[in-house]
Design a protein around this nucleic acid. Structure first.
Lengths: 338, 338
DNA sequence: ACCCTTTTTTACAGCGCTGTAAATTCGCCG
DNA sequence: CGGCGAATTTACAGCGCTGTAAAAAAGGGT
């Protein structure tokens, strides 16, 4: 049962294929009587336009690719949701790619084996340097997300991690905490994201007049609760005694919560704790987690705006934008009393 | 800068377009010298095949659509991950659709406005009845997931919710619990999933010789920790005093954990608690949550197997398969002592 | 050198749709 | 009724690729 074509409808309605096409697209100059006849034919035959043919003829696919490291990380799942929503609002659909946090797949994503699949790509790289990003990119418009440095030629939307981390430190300092540890930087080489958050952590400490003590930086367990739990547990058992913990992300915070609880340390009384990303679970665990939240809807919107400008033909230098963040203050590091 | 076409390569290499096509596809009967010449031309021009043209000519897109209610629910995010992985292993990519748990969008997903976008659809409906599913389906092969009843004509992969819920009740009973409550069925009309789990709950109670008490069924808060927390909190405050809680899903369990904790009830000492789905967070909260886990990779694999058989031309009756589940025993409802 | 088989290569016709530009029809005025 | 500009409609040529079937070239044996 081959599917109904434009030409079938045209024959059925006694008009040319182009007229049917015009009706389908709501072109103005079609006589009402003709339009109706065509519409009846479409309904009777159950015609639906074929995306491939249309795409081949127009050069547009109305699809975007979104490449994130791993959908199982709630932050990326929520990001994918926001972007899908924003894309649909603009008449686009989303092709999903998981780069699995490996450089090979990231390169493959970028230099798409097949052309013509999507009109643009939104990509959150973890491994590729800006040089490689520039080099492997094919003609498709790209907008980058995340903290890796981006080539001058590409658009980039991100949050100001340094400022946010410093802000968190100040919040903890205002609670009277003085031994503020950092949990979750990858070892031996921290990701770019971790580096920026560490930088902000240090900046915050300095701004508060607190000493910067390398012993307070616990590595291991980014985006992985089990590993964060183990890493923090080992550090605590080895004698580390922080009174606050700035975690690289909410998953690490979840792990930290567990490691602290197992050792009888109360949150926030003994150790205040903050996360990052504001994943769903952060609100619901006990104690709920104070966390840095990027405005995902806004981020998705800006990323798509930039991407569509490129799709429409903008070909200038890369735009590099920051979108806002806010600290969601919850039980694990409450507001300072006054 | 229009992109390089097959014909450009052909001209450059001094052969016909079909020969280039043959080389691209690794067709056997191409003289090695020719093959090499063509490959050089491909490399020099940076040619990459256009998916649309190919698809139009072959009738295959090598894309699948996956429609789930909401990616923000970790269960669906993890499901999407598993399916994307399995699809890629088979040379397919995934187009993502979120049906947002509304009947309208579910209908729209099924009767895809545009044809030719994907070769098949994997769909987890929440609202559509089997009648509507059958009625709105266009020609594309479909495999259904989840607990809604499926039309005879469509394939369906799911877990045995009744058996699993009964199994959970038996586990709680073996722990010595006698007042086992159920949390999270939607009100006033429970979803099909909740109905099946309730059915299994009742079956389990009967198998254990426990009375079935409607007062122990707390409605509200499926897949929503905040609402589950509120619903359970209200019930507890009204005097409900269960010694175990079978939650409809892990998100509800998370909410329950919070409601119980806020009232000073200890888990599992005072109230044992189980969830469903085995989302990431279930392992990491304190106490970790005993939960029902479906074998997602297996589920994804079977769903794709069935779908590919349809894509290859199978057009018989719907196959209805169950895939296994297991109880992940953790702190919130530990193994019975012996 | 010639004929026949096998291997390699090619021409051509679409796949389903839309942009362009030209053809036709319509409505109206003088 | 002829003429004219505007409103409708259409023919046709691709978009980039592959299936079919047939042509051309290469071997192999006399």
């Amino acid at each position: 049962m081959r599917s109904v074509r434009l030409s079938d409808v045209a024959r059925h309605a006694g008009v040319s294929t182009k007229t049917v096409s015009n009706v389908v697209h709501g072109y103005q100059h079609v006589r009402p009587s003709t339009r109706e006849r065509v519409q009846r034919a479409i309904a009777e035959l159950g015609y639906r336009p074929d995306a491939r043919g249309r795409s081949l003829a127009t050069g547009r696919t109305h699809m975007l690719a979104l490449a994130v490291p791993d959908l199982r990380n709630p932050y990326f799942a929520e990001l994918a949701h926001s972007i899908a929503e924003a894309a649909i609002a603009r008449g686009y659909r989303l092709l999903l790619e998981e780069s699995m946090g490996t450089p090979e797949v990231e390169r493959a994503v970028l230099s798409a084996e097949e052309a013509g699949l999507v009109d643009g790509l939104i990509f959150q790289p973890v491994w590729l340097t800006s040089g490689e990003l520039a080099q492997h990119s094919r003609g498709v418009p790209v907008v980058l997300l995340g903290e890796n440095s981006a080539p001058l030629s590409m658009d980039h939307v991100r949050t100001d991690n340094v400022a946010a981390a410093a802000h968190v430190v100040e919040h903890l300092h205002a609670l009277g905490r003085r031994r503020i540890a950092f949990l979750g930087a990858e070892a031996p080489v921290p990701s770019q994201t971790s580096k920026l958050r560490l930088m902000g952590y240090q900046k915050g400490l300095e701004a508060c007049g607190l000493p910067v003590d390398p012993a307070l930086v616990v590595t291991g367990g980014a985006a992985d609760a089990a590993r964060a739990c183990a890493a923090l547990g080992a550090a605590l058992d080895a004698g580390l005694a922080p009174d606050a913990l700035l975690c690289r992300d909410d998953l690490a915070a979840l792990g930290a919560l567990r490691a602290l609880g197992e050792r009888g340390l109360r949150v926030p009384e003994d150790v205040a704790l903050t996360g990052w990303d504001d994943i769903e679970a952060a609100t619901h665990v006990r104690p709920s987690i104070t966390t840095v939240r990027a405005d995902a809807a806004h981020l998705a919107g800006r990323a798509l705006d930039l991407l569509f400008e490129r799709i429409e033909g903008y070909d200038g230098l890369g735009r590099h934008e920051f979108i806002g963040h806010s600290l969601q203050v919850r039980e694990s590091a409450p507001a300072a009393k006054r």
